[in-house]
Amino acid sequence: MEVLSNNNLYCSAALAGLFNVFDPEIGLNVVDLGLIYRIDFNDNDKTIVVTMTLTTQFCPMGESITADVQQAVSSAFKDYQVSISLVFDPAWSPELISPEGQKFLDR
């Protein structure tokens, strides 16, 4: 799934960091898993909002994955305040897995 953003250049930099954040059970990064829906940048107040989901609202690793996402984006944008907006509507479904992710799971 394509990650939506109001700044495609910044978004690429954020995604580069997010490719290193993995779902510990599945072993796939959160971008290819389709957990990241949107990343919005606000240059005026130096804030970034990552809109994301989890495979299930009751994911036992949820706290850890969101913390990792926040830290990955913060590392790429040191002057910005990063916040996570966790949403479950629309809910995650396997169709959101990217073709690269699917290849990884096919192994």
Partner: peptide, 20 residues
């Protein structure tokens, strides 16, 4: 392993952490 992983690593954001 999930229960222990959450106990040991949930406060440790990104970095070299083992999988459950």
């Amino acid at each position: 392993p999930f229960i222990v992983w959450n106990k040991v690593y949930h406060t440790r954001a990104i970095g070299k952490t083992p999988t459950p």
